[in-house]
Design a protein around this nucleic acid. Structure first.
Lengths: 237, 237
DNA sequence: GTCGCACAAAAGGTAACACCTTTGCAAGCC
DNA sequence: GGCTTGCAAAGGTGTTACCTTTTGTGCGAC
């Protein structure tokens, strides 16, 4: 279950899009399967207009293509907007949750060191101070053996989200939500030990402090140090 | 002008979406600006249905929110699907092309080393062989002083695209198109010297060879070596 | 067997309505 | 005078009916 942050629209096409989106991302509807507007209308008891608008939204996410005389054709995964938060959410709710978490973790380990470097160069003073605060909080909680608790998870999410935002790169900032979900996923699967692995807490603190004093090289290095551990956890081979 | 890869739909809502999308991503329509369906109908001479479908697509990309009694409200950039290929294309065609190229370059330098590592672990034999071929081709062309030519650019794009795809990570593969555009952008701005910087060609070849023999550590290291140079080119400070 | 043509299915597009929310404004009450 | 209540207009939401356009398919003729 994902925290549904964006549900301000009680519009009737939303449930249709959601249901079909999940059906496709879960594989219930396979590549090449077709469904017609008439079928959608019938199944969801909606008008033609709503069915068409739903199709347009799914099309915008790259899940289907609408072809005349044929219907709505399910596209292969390579066509999907796999980095789209909506699509990611569907994937994380479905049977490919594991693979998706893995891929997101890889993306995270790739991005965070550079985010740390950029944060050291461009973060605001307020951001630098807050990063240090969160790192200290993590250190305190982890040292007390509360690494598996909800409080630690919340602090972890705050720290990493703030790091991405402080990088000043919009694309990195966009990864905040998915990466928060990765941390939640790791936590729920019991991958976060109550007593964090040796070096983790120190790496967080050192990263934050390097950012605080604007030392790009040290920030990148410290961040990578932590993430190497995370990456190896989930690596193939 | 971006190579319009996806234009299989001669549907009348496409130009509306495109025009409004560009208007928003370019800043012509600013945050908080509102337009009504009636205005859209009038300006583009389309029916209400088409105007509504266009609004739904823009909404799916996070560019606008549709509110009753108000109209279509332009959302702040933080709400946009900034990693969506469509949105990226619009940005690259607009006045923020420079900033977007910069952010994409940062993403690229973050991702490629890990992509190289994963490719070393998971690429198919055919992919490994082809990577080596492209690296050699780059080496040959670069050695001949044709680093600024179209042929070199094409090989560069092929090499980097294949690298991302060989990683086996769908999210990385999704970055292929935008990153190809980054390379084109660098080339067009004359950032690629006819005689590539010392170390570049060797780094490509070494990366490809490390992937070929499955040496993850060496592949990651060699890729990072090359990208450090690229990154510093565009770094602030 | 192949080519061509006609038919029909299904999306694309237009138009006209009724409905429901939101919100701005005005009137009235404290 | 300021706050509340109520009303009306604006504009998105949902439905229906109807026509157009494209295109896959099957049948028939050569």
């Amino acid at each position: 279950m994902t925290t549904r942050t964006a549900a301000p629209a009680p519009v009737s096409h939303t449930p249709v899009v959601d249901a079909l989106g999940r059906r496709i991302t879960s594989g219930t509807l396979a590549v090449g399967d077709v469904l017609t507007l008439a079928e959608v209308e019938a199944e969801f008891q909606v008008s033609r207009t709503v069915a068409r608008e739903s199709a347009r939204v799914l099309e915008a996410h790259g899940l289907i293509a609408s072809r005349r005389r044929v219907g709505l054709v399910v596209l292969p995964r390579s066509e999907w907007d796999n980095l789209d938060v909506t699509v990611i959410e569907w994937m994380l709710d479905g049977p490919y949750r594991g693979e998706t978490l893995l891929e997101l973790t890889q993306l995270r380990t790739a991005v965070e060191p550079l985010a740390a470097r950029l944060a050291a160069l461009r973060a605001t003073n307020a951001q630098r101070a807050e990063l240090v605060r969160w790192a200290d909080e993590l250190s305190t909680l982890g040292g007390r053996g509360q690494g598996a608790g909800a409080e630690y998870l919340a602090a972890d999410i705050s720290y990493h989200s703030l790091l991405l935002e402080s990088s000043g790169n919009t694309l990195f900032a966009q990864l905040t939500e998915p990466i928060a979900e990765v941390l939640r996923g790791r936590s729920m699967r019991g991958l976060t030990p109550s007593m964090p692995r040796v070096g983790t807490l120190e790496a967080h603190v050192r990263t934050a402090q390097a950012i605080f004093r604007g030392d790009a090289e040290a920030a990148e290095h410290a961040a990578r140090e932590h993430l190497v551990l995370v990456a190896r956890e989930v690596e193939p081979t």
